[in-house]
C-alpha cells in the first residue's frame, strides 16, 4: 500500500531520465559519433559566418579611416614587407648553407613543413579545456596532430579536424603536453599546460629540466620546442621560465613557464603541416631510391 501523497506521476521525470539513460547506453557508437559530428557540423556555419562577419566588420572599420591614415599604414606595411623580404633572403642563404653541410656530412635533412594561416573563429577557454576553433579543416588538408604556431611562439596542436574547421588544443591547456628544451641546450624536458587564474596570465609547467640549467627573475630563460617530439620544428618559443626548483632526487628541476598573454586573445594562427604527411603513394615511390 502506498503512502498518501506519493504517486507515480511525481517520479515520471526520473523514470523518463532512467529510460533515456538506458537507451543512450545501448545506442551503437557509430550512431553516437554520427550524431555528434552532425550536431557539430550543423552549427559550424554559424561560427564560420560570425567569423566572416567579424572580418567584414574589421574591413568596414578600416574604411572609416582617413586617406592619410591609410597611406601611412600602407607605407608602414611596405617597410615591414621590405624588412621581411630581406630576412627571407638571409634565411634562404642559411638554408642553402645548411643544405650544403647536410650534403657534405650525409645527414638526413630536417623535416620540412608548409604552413596554412587560419583565422580563429572561436576561443573556448574553460577550466576543463582550452581550445581554439580555426577556420580551416579538411578543405585545406589540415592533419590531426599538426603543430599550430603564431608570432609569439607555440599555440598548440590540432586535435580534431572537421569539414571546414579544426579544433586546436591550446598550449596552456592542462591536457597539452609536449617535449621541449631550453634555448642553447639540446636536452629534452617536458612541458605541460597548467590551469591559470581568472584575470591571470596563461602558464604551464616544465618538468624533467636538467639540473644544471639556471633561471632567475633577472636572467630568465626561454623554453622552446624540440624537433625530437616529431610534431614541432625545433626552436619555436613556448614561454619564459623565471625559476626552477630542484627535485629531492637531484636529477631534475621543475618550474612554471609563463606563456605569452596574447594567446588568450589570439586572432590568427599558422598550422605547420609536415610535407612528408602529404606525400601520396606515387610521390613516395618517386622519392624512394
Amino acid at each position: 500500500m502506498s503512502r498518501p501523497g506519493l504517486n507515480f506521476s511525481q517520479f515520471k521525470p526520473f523514470l523518463y531520465l532512467g529510460c533515456f539513460l538506458a537507451g543512450w547506453l545501448f545506442l551503437p557508437p557509430v550512431f553516437k559519433n554520427t550524431l555528434r559530428d552532425t550536431s557539430y557540423e550543423f552549427q559550424a556555419p554559424l561560427w564560420v559566418g560570425s567569423s566572416h562577419l567579424r572580418d567584414v566588420q574589421t574591413t568596414l572599420d578600416l574604411r572609416t579611416r582617413s586617406k592619410n591614415e591609410l597611406i601611412e599604414s600602407v607605407r608602414d606595411l611596405s617597410r615591414e614587407n621590405a624588412f621581411y623580404r630581406q630576412e627571407r633572403a638571409k634565411l634562404n642563404e642559411y638554408q642553402d648553407y645548411i643544405g650544403r653541410l647536410e650534403g657534405l656530412l650525409n645527414l638526413p635533412s630536417l623535416p620540412e613543413y608548409r604552413y596554412e594561416v587560419a583565422r580563429v573563429i572561436r576561443r573556448d577557454l574553460t577550466a576543463w579545456w582550452e581550445r581554439l576553433i580555426i577556420r580551416k579543416g579538411r578543405d585545406f588538408n589540415i592533419p590531426v596532430g599538426a603543430a599550430v604556431v603564431f608570432s609569439g611562439g607555440v599555440v598548440g596542436r590540432v586535435t580534431k579536424v572537421h569539414a571546414y574547421t579544426s579544433d586546436v588544443e591550446l598550449v596552456s591547456s592542462p591536457l597539452f603536453r609536449m617535449a621541449a628544451r631550453f634555448e642553447n641546450d639540446q636536452r629534452p624536458a617536458t612541458y605541460q599546460g597548467r590551469i591559470h587564474n581568472s584575470f591571470g596570465q596563461p602558464f604551464g609547467k616544465v618538468s624533467d629540466a636538467p639540473p644544471d640549467i639556471q633561471a632567475s627573475s633577472t636572467s630568465p630563460i626561454t623554453l622552446v620546442s624540440t624537433a625530437l617530439g616529431g610534431t614541432f620544428p625545433s626552436g619555436i618559443p613556448i614561454g619564459t621560465v623565471y625559476r626552477l626548483k630542484p627535485g629531492s632526487d637531484g636529477l631534475f628541476q621543475t618550474g612554471p613557464v609563463v606563456l605569452d598573454k596574447r594567446l588568450l586573445t589570439i586572432q590568427e594562427v599558422a598550422i605547420l603541416i609536415p610535407l612528408d604527411s602529404e606525400l601520396t603513394p606515387e610521390d613516395e615511390e618517386a622519392v624512394s631510391p
Binding site: 543512450w24 550536431s39 557539430y40 576543463w128
Partner: peptide, 19 residues
C-alpha cells in the same frame, strides 16, 4: 545535443545534464 556539438566533453554528458 546542441551543446554536445559545441563542447569537447565526453559525448552524452551535456545531453545527460540537460535531461
Amino acid at each position: 545535443l546542441w551543446m554536445e556539438g559545441s563542447y569537447p566533453s565526453p559525448f552524452g554528458w551535456f545531453l545527460f545534464l540537460m535531461v
